[in-house]
């Protein structure tokens, strides 16, 4: 049966997504690059230099430690730093042997290693005790960029870290809500063009009910994610306000339905309101966030994740997740619709 197979397919997709969410490891990254405050000797040099500690996350620096290179970068300027000691897989000590005159205060830290590939810590170091001369030019050392030689893993992103897994839950919730509200929108238009049959109205109501459920789940997953990346359960942000207001608008739809007793009038009025609600949804979630700066990913452009942020390992899980949640949402909507139409028939029978 085709009917049954797409539902099982949706469940299978979600099962795959859940397994990937929990079992795929996070790739390596850099956490910190700080001064230890003590001075030390670099091998085969007499001069004393300040020792900096580099802390990685999930790195493998004990494997072939002599091939690890640490490079500072500012624009096109590069300067490689000498290694002092490899403490363990995620800690190394580095000597800061830059000259007194440097072209900038803040530098990116680039670390290359045959296993982890090239890792970047943006603005990782801030030099307080140097003289700044922007005209300074250095001879650039040769460095090669490696890709990581690790099994399938999610990309490391600063701040987000392990919570990147929430991407497969949070974003598809909103996509599914969009889909269901779209179904409701179409059903409302068709309800307004057919006067006698109330079936389209039942459709619109059922899809709004399930859509609201997914909207609420989207708010909850978003709130959890905000707690771990921004430090607060809720922040004042156009995207978040838009999401909350959208849910309120559709809650208003259900309130409106509860107010009206006459079922024909109810079908007509709630359809009219629903069309307004969908227009507001488009404005709030797709137009307004582009007008304003926002903490939320995809600021000033695509309100979802920017496609550049999604690398191939994320995409391999993200797209099935979107499809799977949409299938589950549609299925729940079908069940709800069936229940509602039975209710309607029962009332007709009485």
């Amino acid at each position: 049966m085709i009917q049954r197979s797409w539902k099982i397919g949706g469940l299978a997709l979600l099962g795959y997504v859940l397994c990937m969410i929990f079992f795929v490891p996070l790739g390596p990254g850099l956490l910190e690059f700080t001064s230890t405050g003590s001075a030390g000797h670099v091998q085969d040099q007499d001069r004393k230099v300040t020792v900096y500690a580099l802390t990685g996350f999930g790195t493998h620096w004990t494997e072939s430690p002599d091939q690890l290179t640490v490079v500072l970068r500012h624009g096109t300027q590069l300067a490689s730093l000498p290694l002092i000691e490899t403490l363990d897989a995620t800690h190394v000590l580095v000597g800061m042997d830059l000259p007194y005159t440097v072209p900038s205060k803040s530098w990116d830290v680039l670390v290359t290693h045959p296993v982890d590939g090239t890792l970047l810590l943006e603005n990782g170091v801030f030099l307080q005790d140097r003289f700044i001369d922007e005209q300074t030019k250095w001879a650039n050392p040769e460095i090669a960029e490696y890709p990581a030689e690790l099994p399938f893993h999610f990309p490391y992103q600063p701040q987000i870290l392990e919570t990147i897994r929430n991407l497969m839950l949070h974003v598809p919730m909103w996509f599914t809500m969009f889909l269901l509200m779209g179904i409701s929108f179409v059903a409302s238009i068709r309800q307004l063009s057919t006067a006698h049959d109330l079936h389209q109205d039942t459709k619109a109501e059922a899809s709004v009910q399930i859509g609201l459920l997914f909207g609420a789940l989207g708010l909850v997953t978003g709130s959890l994610w905000a707690r771990y990346t921004w430090g607060a359960w809720w922040v004042d942000d156009p995207q978040l306000n838009g999401a909350l207001v959208t849910v309120l608008v559709y809650a208003g739809y259900l309130v409106l339905r509860a107010t009206i007793q006459n079922i024909r009038l109810r079908a007509r009025l709630s359809s009219v309101y629903n069309l307004f609600a969908f227009v507001i949804l488009i404005i709030l979630l797709m137009v307004l966030p582009r007008f304003s700066e926002s903490l939320h990913p995809g600021k000033g452009g695509n309100p979802g994740f920017n496609s550049y942020d999604l690398d191939s390992s994320l995409r391999a899980v993200f797209y099935p997740a979107v499809l799977g949640w949409m299938m589950l949402g549609t299925w729940m909507y079908h069940v709800r619709l069936k229940a509602s139409s039975i209710e309607r028939k029962l009332r007709q029978l009485q």
Binding site: N241, V245, V249, G252, V255, L256, T259, L265, I280, I283
Partner: peptide, 29 residues
Amino acid sequence: LAARAGGGFSLIAVLGLPLIIPIILVSTR
């Protein structure tokens, strides 16, 4: 809409307040 639904002022507030928020957001900014 609210008058037709017979809901009175509270219904205007429930339906209207969320819908006007995009306007107010843009205006305050």
